[in-house]
Design a protein around this nucleic acid. Structure first.
Lengths: 245, 245
DNA sequence: GTCAAGAGAATGTCAGGACAAATAGGCATG
DNA sequence: CATGCCTATTTGTCCTGACATTCTCTTGAC
């Protein structure tokens, strides 16, 4: 059981529990805390770092939620066995690709303001027929086509330009306009690609594709985006970590 | 903003924050708290229920994590717009089908104790060549084939009988043996089914299938199960709710 | 009439303490 | 030697209190 090196900066705007969680996570990723290793108990850890127990608990809880640690009453806290998997957070494909250094490229196939189809109007909670922005993009990674992204956005985002969408990810653009995205509900399935989809993605006709429908809500609970995406099954998969509490 | 009817039972072993969360969730599901409705502030809610603010916060946090509520600093807490979606928890296909009243049936195709293949030995953290239980099941829903489930279990579960596996879900069996499952890491993809898979599932040859690989860890961080499943894409999809914090 | 400063309100963070419940390991007893 | 009890350890729950940060709305100045 090794000592944890945690540099706490109490003047930083970054919350203490977050600083601690980040440090522990780094120790796990670096192998300093091996899979299966037991952490010291919460109270002595809190003492060592000069924190209260609730703050220490919160730091640990964050990593439990991410699937990196497990706790057992009466026993202690341990590092989960198994490979390092980067858990899926509320990010977009663009973010994921950028972070893994794959230099995504985006081609805007369609950029049109149109009356919302019924299904879209319902999920975005708009009056039927309200004008929405419909964009269709082809996303490349390493200069290979990866996905066709169909998205509908409520009226206030109708001024997003094709140039914006070609350069930055949709989530990035929304964030830069002050949208605080909090919840996304996804439905992941599969089907045979249409002739057009397969052509765009460079797959043989009738190839299996991974599909994803998503509704994203902001911090006031409003739906800010609805999308229907198809991915090349040969080059993409979703990773999900589920935690029971 | 309606009053919340919450029956608190302080003598119950069910934690107070959980009782409160359950009540609020019921109010949302029943429509008593409509989408977009604002909750009263944490302090007055806590006062009304005779609870401390941390306990009240924890109840709300649980629903925020489930994607039912959103909070915004300086503003308040609101119910998320949009349809009621049952968020995915750490459950098995069997649990899901049972809960939605679809009477799953299971056919055990294979039940064999064999040396662990390298990949399995690694993910289950066993010595190479250790004997593991390999089961292959065909899962029906409404008397239609739905999925082919391949699973590997560590040595201590080798005594699970085919009869057990035909009658109950794998997660149920593990739970009844005192295994506390906490974390599952899934990878969801798609591919064309093999001739055998399509035949078993009653699909045309080369149909697209949804694939899922999963490693489940218990509360001491040990891997207790590894599975590779294929689902009929025409009849199944995964629903996932992501929350940013 | 417009814009900026300020007050109020709500959630976010952090501390310190107390007791409950579950686990594991040692110890005594059969 | 085996079994059951007891105790120490550790996490789980709950409380009270305080201050910080962010957003909204009102008020006031220009």
């Amino acid at each position: 059981m090794s000592e944890l090196f945690v540099d706490l900066d109490r003047s930083s705007p970054v919350p203490l529990y977050f600083q601690v969680a980040r440090s522990i996570e780094a120790a796990i990723q670096s192998g300093q805390l091996a899979p299966g290793a037991r952490l010291e108990n919460e109270i002595s850890l809190a003492d060592q770092l000069g924190l209260s127990r609730p703050t220490m608990r919160r730091a640990i809880q964050q990593l439990v939620d991410k699937g990196l640690l497990v706790r057992k009453r009466g026993v202690g806290t341990q590092v989960v066995h198994g490979q390092v998997t980067r858990p899926v957070e509320l990010t977009s494909l663009f973010d994921d690709l950028t972070r893994s250094g794959q230099a995504p490229r985006t081609e805007v196939l369609l950029h049109r303001i149109e009356p919302a189809p019924d299904e879209v109007a319902v999920t975005l909670a708009l009056a039927p027929g309200t004008d929405v922005l419909h964009v269709r993009r082809l996303r490349y990674s390493r200069e290979e086509p990866l996905a066709v992204l169909d998205n509908y956005l409520p009226p206030e985002f109708c001024d997003l330009s094709p140039a914006d969408l070609a350069l930055r990810g949709l989530y990035q653009l929304l964030r830069s306009r002050g949208v605080g995205m909090r919840v996304a509900k996804q439905r992941i399935g599969a089907r045979r690609g249409t002739a057009e989809e397969c052509h765009l993605l460079g797959e043989r006709r009738g190839s299996p594709l991974l599909t994803m429908e998503r509704t994203t809500h902001d911090d006031s609970g409003r739906a800010v985006e609805w999308g229907r995406h198809v991915y090349r099954a040969s080059r993409y998969a979703f990773e999900v970590t589920l935690v029971d509490r």
